[in-house]
Design a protein around this nucleic acid. Sequence first.
DNA 1: CTGAAAGCGCTTACAG
DNA 2: CTGAAAGCGCTTACAG
Lengths: 347, 347
Amino acid sequence: MASHSDGIQGRPTLADVAARAGVSQATVSRALADSPLVNEQTRRRVWEVAERLAFQPNRLARSLRRGATMAIGLVVPDVATAFYSTALKGVQEVVEAAGYHVLVVSTERDARREREAFASLRAHQVDGVIVATSGGYESLGVPAVFIDNVPAAPGTVAVALDNAAGVALLVEHLVSVHGQSRIAYVGPPETVGSGGGAEGAGRERLEAFRAAIGRAGLALPPEYVRLAGHVDWEGTAPALTAELLALPAPPDAIVAGADLLALGVLRGLRDGGRRVPEDVALVSFDEPVFADLLDPPVTSLDRHDREIGRRAGRLLLDALTGAGPAGDTVERVPLTLHARRSCGCGG
Amino acid sequence: MASHSDGIQGRPTLADVAARAGVSQATVSRALADSPLVNEQTRRRVWEVAERLAFQPNRLARSLRRGATMAIGLVVPDVATAFYSTALKGVQEVVEAAGYHVLVVSTERDARREREAFASLRAHQVDGVIVATSGGYESLGVPAVFIDNVPAAPGTVAVALDNAAGVALLVEHLVSVHGQSRIAYVGPPETVGSGGGAEGAGRERLEAFRAAIGRAGLALPPEYVRLAGHVDWEGTAPALTAELLALPAPPDAIVAGADLLALGVLRGLRDGGRRVPEDVALVSFDEPVFADLLDPPVTSLDRHDREIGRRAGRLLLDALTGAGPAGDTVERVPLTLHARRSCGCGG
DNA sequence: CTGAAAGCGCTTACAG
DNA sequence: CTGAAAGCGCTTACAG
């Protein structure tokens, strides 16, 4: 190893490079930063030595000195959910290109773990955060961008799906293409997580559903709306579905407000002996993974997980470099419908 | 905020606590570490002040001084794959309880990104790494635990699925329960990723397949073995399946060596107009997500993603604390078969 | 253009 | 039991 042949023990430091290049640490630091303050010949010599020693600046020391860590935090309810892990990749793609690193913390939708998440990011002194909160949010005094759920607070920067338009697409498809009129809704909870009072995508989708049903001139019996809790959607949706099926006038179509709910509803319909779409049609807000391989393939809105991550990353970088708008920016990602068999389409 | 009422600007430091507690920084440092070297009264006073100021030690400074970051790296080919994101949660569960943090880096199975991953972890000076390599591995001079693929190098610490026993279960089920004799295999590549020459789960599964077919006294025409490349399994498996179907004597059953391959094979069979399991039976090594909701539900080995992460985390902690065996430890996670309709079972 | 020196916020021998 | 001081490895005014 170079470090051995050069008599350096362990990782080479700025001082090692300086000694071998015959200049001061300050000059090495400037040269490696390609500062215009340093002579071209000196710069080249320093780079040569640095490369020979495979010198890598110690990030800890640099961060301590600079007061910036070049790390950003990403808080998600559950990294093992396709949406969040894919969004993570979008975030990484954008921020790593700008030299930042991502610290992911998964809260498992637990209030305690959520607090710990923010404490941890604070301790790591991240320069900014991207938050898919399932409830709580605690300012770290650094720029924040929200995804998934958009807090009502002023000054919020966020990127979210166009929930209202998306739900409208689903309902209108059921009504105008398939002539459905008895349409129920199984959706995420109205309030977000444990934070108490926060509102987000769940509320938006529910309101959009009510509005779309209204616009179509259809009746919406209160019992046609079933909302899940904050955890285990896939597990609870079958029971909500069973409740719908047990109604004196059960629905002929169900709109699921999220992919995992759609899978649960599908299971519930199957458990209840209903054929999809013949007995009950099903459409889903988010596309389930491998939607086309399911039985039946599920009609849903196309996903934009990675794109959401990318946009959030860009908004955060803007905020970090002071390039972005000060706040109150909510980017809405437009959605398109992908018709498959579960709604009654040919597929 | 406490910091304001106490006249501190920004984050409180050890010096702030020391000044207010009327002791030296050294004493504060020791008191907060609950060192026995400090007087009980002093200790209490220091804690009181620290809590009043909401003091949190600066990890950067601590790490720089101690030479340990309390961070570990996790290198995976793709965080958005269920296996890796779930394993990540298992790792986090274990190591966060011990005060460590996890830096995740997703290589996208790209040789360049893989090198960058290790460079990045080196720069972050992680205290250890857990590697699900898709090829390369570059020692960082810190303890490493491998998952998924086990390098042949001596001294390796790893946790992996019991590939051999798992494949045997699948083949034996097809043979003894369903009387299949024309069984083909669509599997992961023999060598692992871009590293060149490394061998891993792909090789183990293939060899186990050959051995199991042999033990059953069946013939294995060379053309019954199709291996995928390193990327886009879901996309390439349909073509491999088509090749099998085009054979003069096509197989009656297919063993897929991984979940994404199984989904691709399923698509290929469907594209080829074959009914599953009537025309061609299908079994999968890993269980696909929502395997029970697929058409047909897919027979597969139960997953242990999170458990693998937990075990890897524990092995790494052992190595970090010097408690563990020096090396050459390969934990094998036993697998069980979950029969569903795709193999011909009632399901 | 270059260097000597201070300082980021901790921990830990060393001395008392 | 406690404190003064050094030092982890950088960056950056400050002075030349």
